[in-house]
Design a protein around this nucleic acid. Structure first.
Lengths: 210, 210
DNA sequence: CGTAGTCTTGAGTATCCTCAACGAGGGTGG
DNA sequence: CCACCCTCGTTGAGGATACTCAAGACTACG
């Protein structure tokens, strides 16, 4: 089943009815968890090619919401996917690969959240987006999500996100053509190896005390 | 291959030689990532029954170290595990279940790291340990790891961990018989449902401003 | 043109980190 | 047996960072 969604529309309600797989075709989406006091945590951003649906029993607690307009997704009943996985080897391996990718991203995010300062977190986030991007030029990153989404993703406040952007600009690490298009100067001349860029980004971030 | 390790001994070096699966039989272990400046992040604690080895290419960056003495683990070459998974349906499903469990734990951890105050994080961590515990009485939690391990797990400093324990004690949410055995008073009379305990713990934690 | 939403910036406060010191427990050697 | 060293855990003081509250630009849209 293929459907299209508008901005901020709910693709997938968190709750017991959560029994489908979601595969993002185009646009972008966010995976949210709402705490009892109304605060929101964003677990992951789903870009074209990403999917959501494993995670065992706990997926009930997460809602999926569209970011861009339009966002096109395919949904499959869980039972169908699992049956296909049992029958076809290629399907099974594909599912396994996507699950591993989700796990890898989650682990990478734990590292990011563990970083100390807000500019560090933001820079790590931008680098992550750059690596997930399909663009050829990895120094140009487009941000489909709002500052509020970034804030809930990095577990910091909106104002801090804005200030962190200002800090990175002041240090010459990034340039913003507009609010949603970033040029990562930090990556220019740096090998695309993940650890390289991270540590160098980190080195830069360390020297950001005004 | 079954081996036994002493406290703080390296089970598994991070690096290119990381080609095995690790299955914890008894004791406890931690999964570490070392940043270029020497700081350490703990991605996960491995208790008996947990395993480590999926995660695709990124597992190279993580080291596994023993916490308790002795810690007994089984290691298998990756190729062997993957072949067994391809041949035997039961094995494959078991592997898939463990991968999903790792993913679920990672997602849960992202929620925990997103919590605002240190006592909130610590309480969420204790609740998580209580739910992973095999004990019948879930209000009694044993902490095999040191305060430094907890600090690196929650991405806060050791001193803050200690102060957070003091705050939780002062609010009557936990009691410590010794440094490594906690009684979770917050869970007494609370349904073991995950969301219930979390939100109630959170409610309590909110009212902790001295 | 007004309204709503987003993004940014400022001021004041609270939290956490760093540095430092101290006490408790375990192992070792005199 | 006790002094010594080492690690771990705790507590205090000072400073840096991020949050809250508040207000002001910018954009989109009716």
């Amino acid at each position: 089943v293929t459907r299209s969604f508008r901005s901020n529309e709910e693709i997938y309600p968190g709750g017991d009815s959560a029994r489908d797989w979601v595969f993002v075709v185009s646009g972008a989406a966010r995976t949210c968890h709402y705490l009892s006091d109304g605060r929101r945590r964003i677990l992951d951003f789903l870009l074209p090619g990403n999917c959501f649906g494993f995670g065992g029993h706990d997926i009930r607690h997460f809602a999926v919401e569209a970011i861009l307009e339009p966002t096109v997704v395919c949904t499959f009943p869980r039972a169908l996917v699992e049956r296909a996985g049992a029958d076809h080897r290629a399907m099974r391996e594909s599912i396994h690969a996507m699950a591993l990718e989700s796990l890898t991203r989650a682990q990478s995010r734990i590292i990011t959240l563990g970083r100390v300062t807000a500019p560090e977190k933001l820079l790590a986030f931008l680098v992550e987006l750059s690596q997930r991007s399909i663009r050829e030029d990895r120094t140009l990153v487009s941000l489909p999500m709002s500052r509020y989404d970034i804030a809930d993703y990095l577990a910091i406040s909106v104002e801090t996100v804005s200030r962190a952007f200002a800090t990175l600009k002041r240090c010459g690490l990034v340039h913003l053509t507009d609010s949603h298009h970033v040029h990562l100067a930090a990556l220019s001349g740096v090998k695309p190896s993940e650890d390289e860029s991270r540590s160098s980004a980190h080195e830069f971030a360390l020297s950001m005390n005004d």
